[in-house]
């Protein structure tokens, strides 16, 4: 064989060895022992709180947790097919998901705050009807609800977001036949909506209660029907825009998953729920 051929053979052989080696290492080596790994994933709303749980729970239960995202539905589906042990859903489970064997465990409640850009003055409270009218396009200027003369820039979450579903459900039950108008800027996450509302003059949007509380400048939270969102008002139901945060398991929770859920529902876990900006179960 001449040099070039030798070189090529060497390269190919190396490549084959590398790939085979990777496989061998992966398969036989020190891969994660499944009994001490917990795969949790799904809703991006719950994810930061789950990460906070992880920081304590891993040491407490001597387990290694993997917290991934992808959305509530990805969480539910991956739990159904076994990729995840626990799915995070920022909404109640759908009947199709329950039919496939998922069991729901409510771990917290979440309020949805309505926030308005600071350039709008004179609006500290809105009724549900007014909010519905703003989002359906009937009201287009802030002066029609007691504010200054500024066009309303309507911001929402994407079709299918748990937060949006919660908001839309409340709107639909307030005004029959309610439909969101089409000229609405949509964003994919709490952070993005917060960003947009704080930086767009005349904007209105809705985000999770905890996120709204962390806004330091650029936007403020309005009261809905005179009620400001808080742990108390969500718990006693006076704040109307709220939803459940759910963990899903395939079949009843077992082993490490059961331990995690039980721990989250304990005082220690619920304290972290509150610190994360969500509403602990009373």
């Amino acid at each position: 064989m001449n040099n070039s051929t030798k070189m090529l053979t060497a390269v190919l052989l190396t490549a084959v060895i590398c790939i085979a080696g990777t496989y061998a290492v992966a398969a036989g080596g020190s891969h994660q022992d499944e009994s001490t790994t917990l795969n949790v994933g799904g809703s991006t709303t719950i994810q930061p709180m789950m990460v906070s749980f992880q920081e304590t729970f891993e040491g407490y239960a001597k387990v290694s947790m993997n917290v991934t995202s992808g959305g509530s539905s990805v969480g539910a589906n991956s739990t159904i097919n076994g990729t995840l042990d626990v799915g995070m859903c920022s909404r109640d489970l759908k009947s199709s998901e329950l039919e496939q064997g998922l069991v729901a465990h409510i771990i917290a409640k979440d309020g949805v705050s309505v926030i308005i850009n600071s350039s709008v003055t004179g609006v500290s409270s809105l009724t549900l009807e007014q909010i519905a009218a703003i989002y359906s396009g009937e009201i287009t200027n802030w002066k029609d609800v007691g504010g200054n003369d500024k066009e309303i820039a309507v911001i929402a979450r994407e079709d299918g977001s748990g937060t949006r579903e919660c908001f839309d459900t409340v709107m639909s039950s307030t005004v029959s036949g309610w439909k969101m108008k089409s000229v609405v800027s949509q964003f994919a996450s709490t952070g993005a909506v917060t960003n947009a509302v704080t930086s767009t003059p005349g904007a209105i949007g809705y985000v999770s209660l905890g996120a709204a509380e962390k806004i330091t400048s650029g936007a403020y939270t309005v009261a809905v029907d005179g009620v400001m969102p808080s742990v108390e008002t969500v718990n006693d139901g006076t704040y109307e825009i709220q939803r459940n945060l759910v963990l899903a398991t395939k079949g009843p929770a077992q082993g490490m998953a059961a331990l995690l859920i039980a721990w989250i529902l304990s005082d220690e876990g619920q304290k972290i729920v509150e610190e994360s900006g969500f509403i602990p179960l009373s």
């Binding site: 990777t22 994660q32 994810q47 930061p48 990460v51 992880q54 920081e55 891993e58 993997n66």
Partner: peptide, 13 residues
């Protein structure tokens, strides 16, 4: 994943 407390040793993590 969003958080890990240690560097995993295997390519399967």
């Amino acid at each position: 994943v969003a958080f890990q407390s240690s560097i995993p040793g295997s390519v399967l993590s």
